[in-house]
Design a protein around this nucleic acid. Structure first.
Lengths: 97, 97
DNA sequence: GTTTCAATTCGTTAATTTACGAACAAAAGT
DNA sequence: ACTTTTGTTCGTAAATTAACGAATTGAAAC
């Protein structure tokens, strides 16, 4: 019984999972509008603990959708273009857009 | 501290969550290609137990993305057009497509 | 009325997710 | 050296998810 699920389907599910929380949607939306942000800014705006935010950022990093660059003492986050574009491609195909 | 997360962001996260499993992606993809299917067909193709499939279908139903129609003794599933279109709209905006 | 078919619900288990505050780390400024 | 700033990691708890097989339902079909 070979696998009927394709790699593309797994990847799309993976990206969807990364997007499956309102906070993470908020962050991605922000980053697709303004090129970058600092997590300190997010901490001030979002009604969650710093550590929780950190977890969400990690989740997005692990999914490959964002990347962080150290600008001591802060960290500048921006979209990971390659994967973001790949995700867009998958969603586009999936949704017939 | 009012809610900085919009309803649209919550809805998009909700739809993403429904799409966050390969099996559910598979089902949605199938339904967006062929108008309808019977869960019996899915049971034969997919490498999971019937009860597990049932859970995934329920998940998609709860997210409003599919609907089931009884055609005794089977159940015919198809996309829930309204919500599917709404989901598409949200993803389109979110991804700038 | 009982059997059969298709699918869901139940009961259970293991793993993952989300959240928090406290503790920790790294680097710069004092 | 020590303090401050900024984030991450740790430890923990509660809730949700995913999976299975067994039991159940509901509506024909016999």
């Amino acid at each position: 019984m070979k696998d009927v699920i394709t790699n593309d389907q797994k990847k799309l599910a993976r990206y969807s999972k990364a997007m499956s929380h309102p906070i993470r949607i908020y962050i991605l939306e922000l980053l697709s509008n303004q090129s970058c942000c600092y997590s300190g800014d997010l901490t001030e705006i979002l009604p969650i603990a710093k550590s929780t935010l950190s977890q969400h950022l990690k989740e997005l990093k692990n999914a490959g959708l964002i990347q962080g660059e150290i600008e001591t003492p802060k960290i500048k986050y921006c979209l990971s273009r390659d994967n973001w574009d790949e995700a867009k491609k998958y969603f586009k195909l999936f949704l017939n857009l």
